[in-house]
């Protein structure tokens, strides 16, 4: 692991540990395991393949070569070695198993579970739910898998019981595409629906699906905040291809927390372990050497200065009272590939 310490513009730059990236490509979408001892991330080689890796992390330092989480298809003569995508890692909050999307050339996009015991990744059975599967997430107790399937046309939200891997509930059945579903602690579900060329946020509560936040542009990748009392999401309502982070504390309410953020490749807004902060990167090159955190009530914003460029895709975890931030960034301007870094930000969030 490489450790860099830099001083820039009189500010102390956080000591950032670099996770060894074992392949050429952009490191993307870091996602911490529930215990903060592993971080999953993607390597996008820009050749049609995306590979999923998991690095072990101890005390903020990654150890060893990250493990590649592959599909067996890569070893067969049918899928070939190219065109394979393993991405969108999501950790089961209780059993520490890693779920992810997987596909190969000519095949469907399916969800897989990897349990780190040497056994090949286990697919969500085709005879239980067919079609392309995406956007995996979990209920609070980890026993229900929420995802989107296009089995009956456009994407609909389903919940699959992991108690038997058979019992499923169809949450939505609209003529539109639903995406990015997430449970709150009470079992309510927030998701987005793409209709009339715009993506809006809906909430499934007490068996009914209701509009939550709409408006101009896309409102996307919602995440429950304040244990379910509010929804935080990305919005492009200002147009011009710019993205903001906003929070909605009630139906049809919204408040912008940060503007001109760098939209993560596929992640939802990243919250701090205590749920009080949202982390993001900014598009402005002058500000993109930092990861920024804003309190959900909007009262405070801080910068985590880094020695890297174009910082983005922050992901936060807490281990033993320490708060660690994983993010991706370019080593320097004009570098080929984004790298993955981990930094201790405990002091910054006091």
């Amino acid at each position: 692991m490489m450790v860099t310490t830099l001083w820039m513009m009189g500010m102390q730059v956080a000591q950032a540990g670099q996770v060894q990236v074992p392949a050429d490509g952009h490191a993307m979408n870091p996602v911490w395991s529930p215990d903060g001892k592993k971080v999953a991330f993607e390597i996008n080689g820009q050749t049609g393949s995306i590979s999923l890796f998991v690095a072990n992390v101890d005390g903020g330092n990654s150890s060893g070569v990250p493990e590649k989480i592959g599909l067996k298809v890569e070893q067969t003569s049918f899928g070939g070695s190219t065109g394979t995508v393993t991405a969108a890692p999501t950790w089961n909050p209780v059993n520490k198993a890693l779920f992810f999307e997987g596909s190969h050339k000519g095949g469907s996009n399916r969800l897989y579970m990897y349990s780190f015991n040497g056994q090949p990744a286990y697919p969500v059975p085709e005879n239980v739910i067919s079609g392309d599967l995406s956007w995996p997430s979990f209920s609070k107790d980890g026993m229900e898998l929420l995802f989107v399937s296009d089995a009956t046309g456009k994407g609909d939200v389903y919940a699959l019981s992991l108690r038997d891997w058979k019992t499923k509930r169809q949450i939505t059945s609209s003529e539109y595409s639903e995406m990015a579903p997430r449970f709150d602690n009470d079992g309510n579900i927030v998701y987005t629906r793409k209709q009339n060329d715009a993506e809006d946020i809906f909430v499934h509560k007490s068996g009914t699906n209701n509009d939550w936040v709409g408006g101009a542009g896309d409102q996307t990748r919602p995440q429950w905040a304040n244990a379910g009392g509010a929804v935080i999401y990305f919005t492009s309502e200002r147009g011009g291809g710019v993205w903001d982070v906003a929070i909605s504390s009630g139906q049809s309410q919204s408040k912008t927390l940060a503007k001109d953020i760098r939209l993560p490749f596929r992640a939802a807004p990243s919250l701090s372990p205590d749920g009080k902060w949202v982390a993001y990167g900014l598009e402005n090159p002058d500000k993109a050497t930092s990861i920024w955190l804003t309190k959900l009530d909007g009262s405070k914003t801080i910068a985590i200065k880094t020695p890297h460029q174009a910082c983005a895709e922050p992901s936060l975890t807490e281990v033993g009272g320490k708060i660690y931030l994983a993010y991706t960034g370019l080593p320097s301007e004009g570098s080929n590939w984004r790298q993955l870094h981990i930094v201790d930000v405990t002091d910054k969030l006091q």
Partner: peptide, 9 residues
């Protein structure tokens, strides 16, 4: 208690 992992189920 039904085990979580599908191979165990």
């Amino acid at each position: 208690t039904m085990p979580f992992f599908p191979d165990q189920q």
